[in-house]
């Protein structure tokens, strides 16, 4: 028996619509639950005052600062490393056993569960290098964790830059480095930024790797060698230990909003870059 092609077409359309709707619906549902449960407890005081009594009372200011510091510092360490590696792999080496090994390593790193990064960071940075539970140990651990994403996305973005543009740049008396910085990187910037955004998202939401390395101190970290707590870790501890579900949802809401905020800013920067180079 043959199905009427028109009917099949309609059926597929309905099915695809349904799938798209389902995906969006899950997202909306999560955000809605967090909003409904968290919104009543979020106010300026919650954002700008520090936690009291393990977070049962007070706000989450120190965890916001902890999150911001961890994420910004990790991105600052990981981006030059990751983009540099990507430039090396694409522009400065030929395909060889060596590059294959690096790529294999990068891909393997990307697949490791974050708890293992946490354990590695704990054993290596916290214990072996005697950093203790500290912002610095957290930054290094998160850096290692997000490097594969930045390297992979940067590499893809750099590879997608047409060869013609490089040839033209060379023919206009540019050196390799000038070509990379003036032509290749600006053209690849949107792709690289996507990788950085994904990494920020991962870092902001990470708990396992952070709790083992940066610790979970509720005090405001004032130096790289001090322990601190991120919003994600705070949420986890509040919910897990049943300290305060209200505060937990309020924290989650701030977390979600800040990710949204970061995305908007990243898109803004991306558009600026794209419009300058097109």
């Amino acid at each position: 028996m043959r199905i009427n092609p028109r009917f099949a077409d309609k059926l597929v359309k309905i099915a695809l619509n349904g799938q798209a709707f389902f995906t969006v619906w899950i997202l909306v549902a999560i955000v809605a639950v967090i909003c409904v449960k968290g919104l009543p407890y979020v106010n300026l005081e919650f954002i700008f005052s520090s936690p009291v009594d393990m977070g049962r009372h007070g706000g989450i200011f120190s965890t916001i600062i902890g999150t911001v510091l961890l994420v910004i510092l990790s991105i600052f360490v990981a981006t030059p490393l990751g983009v540099g590696t990507a430039i090396f792999l694409t522009e400065y080496t030929k395909e060889s056993v060596f590059t294959k090994i690096i790529r294999f390593g990068v891909e393997s790193l990307a697949g490791i569960p974050s708890i293992l990064y946490g354990l590695f960071g704990f054993i290596f940075f916290v214990i072996k290098l005697r950093m203790g539970w500290s912002l610095l140990a957290g930054v290094f651990t998160i850096t290692i964790m997000i490097l594969p994403t930045i390297i992979r996305t940067s590499e893809e973005a750099i590879k997608a830059v047409p060869r013609n543009l490089r040839i033209v740049s060379y023919s206009l008396s540019a050196t390799k480095w000038e070509t990379v910085t003036k032509v290749v990187l600006p053209s690849a910037a949107p792709g690289i930024l996507t990788g950085i955004m994904l990494s920020i998202g991962r870092a902001v939401g990470e708990t396992a790797a952070v709790i083992f390395t940066m610790g979970s101190s509720l005090r405001l970290p004032t130096s790289l060698m001090e322990s601190g707590r991120t919003m994600a870790v705070h949420f986890y501890i509040l919910a897990r230990e049943g300290i305060s579900m209200q505060k937990a949802y309020a924290t989650a809401l701030v977390l979600v909003l800040s990710i949204l905020f970061i995305n908007i800013i990243a898109y803004y920067i991306m558009n600026r870059v794209v419009s300058k180079y097109s």
Partner: peptide
């Protein structure tokens, strides 16, 4: 100086 077959403006 060189001019190539395919016109290739730089994206700027």
């Amino acid at each position: 100086g060189t001019v190539f077959a395919v016109p290739t403006p730089l994206p700027r």
